[in-house]
């Protein structure tokens, strides 16, 4: 448990990517995800790959770490590739294995789709790798602000999000602590018949719920004691600001998108 990592867990840093306004990152990544589906030629994929690679390098997050975060997803990428390889019947027959014809179209399709998949995951995980959960929440609150006009509880939603995000590490620590305490009392979480292992979860879950409820109560009390009364008229400690680099990144990204449409076949 204590060696478990969350994929895309924030890596502190001070790179350009870290310093970008979170709204910029969310917008650019959102449109990147959309435009990945427009790529259809070798050069259009190459352009997007270069864009993703430059972003990764600029973020200064160790590549090894990103690769490790991808481990659970490699399987899916390879699976997608093989699926397309086997079922697509376009172009010429490239070769045959076990009397199953593999078409050139299948190879191209397989590479394209798994590449698309790979790019999507690398770029989206870059968001959480370089942006604190709090920044993401702030950005979402700002970006959804227009919805307040139709009485959508934007602030409350953002608050719920940031509280949940804030307590994920706490909850994980707590889980680690209590499972160690119960393991010391002879509970075996890892081996034994399934029924026994399900029963072993009770001594873990009960204390977790008890402490989560207690924590929620304490938090509510502390917030009330400090005069919290919802989003109305509330000022902010961290103001989001669009700076020069943000503008630069938008321009760069628009160029990339324009390039993408030029390179499409």
């Amino acid at each position: 448990m204590n060696n478990m990592m969350i994929i895309g867990q924030y890596v502190p840093g001070n790179s350009i990517i870290h310093r970008l306004d979170p709204r910029t990152k969310i917008t650019v990544i959102f449109f990147f995800v959309v435009f990945v589906f427009f790529a259809n030629s070798f050069w259009s994929y190459a352009l997007l790959t270069v864009f993703a690679a430059v972003s990764v390098i600029a973020s200064r997050v160790p590549v090894r770490y990103i690769a490790k975060g991808l481990t659970p997803i490699w399987f899916l990428i390879v699976f997608t590739f093989l699926l397309h390889l086997i079922v697509t019947k376009e172009g010429q027959v490239a070769f045959e294995i076990f009397s199953w014809k593999i078409y050139t179209g299948g190879i191209a399709q397989g590479i394209a789709i798994s590449m698309r998949f790979f790019l999507l995951i690398v770029v989206t995980s870059l968001l959480t790798l370089t942006t604190t959960p709090i920044e993401i929440t702030d950005a979402i609150e700002e970006m959804l602000a227009p919805l307040k006009k139709v009485k959508f509880p934007v602030h409350e939603l953002a608050l719920m999000m940031s509280i949940s995000l804030r307590f994920i590490p706490t909850l994980m620590q707590e889980t680690d602590k209590i499972s160690k305490a119960q393991a010391s009392r002879g509970v075996d979480f890892r081996t034994g018949p399934l029924k026994e292992r399900i029963k072993a979860v009770v001594p873990l879950l009960v204390p977790l719920f008890v402490s989560a409820f207690k924590r929620a109560e304490e938090l509510a009390m502390a917030m009330e004691a400090r005069g919290y009364q919802g989003g109305e008229g509330r000022s902010k400690l961290r103001e989001l600001r669009i700076g020069k680099i943000d503008v630069l990144i938008y321009i760069l990204f628009i160029c990339v998108v324009a390039g993408l449409f030029l390179l499409r076949s």
């Binding site: 707590e174 602590k177 209590i178 160690k180 305490a181 119960q182 393991a183 010391s184 009392r185 002879g186 075996d188 009770v202 001594p203 009960v206 204390p207 008890v210 402490s211």
Partner: peptide
């Protein structure tokens, strides 16, 4: 390992959190 754990008893910090 279970035998070891029966011979080494650990009272963790704030052990009351383990009651269930």
């Amino acid at each position: 390992i279970k035998e070891l754990r029966s011979k080494v008893g650990i009272v963790f910090q704030y052990p009351e959190h383990q009651l269930f």
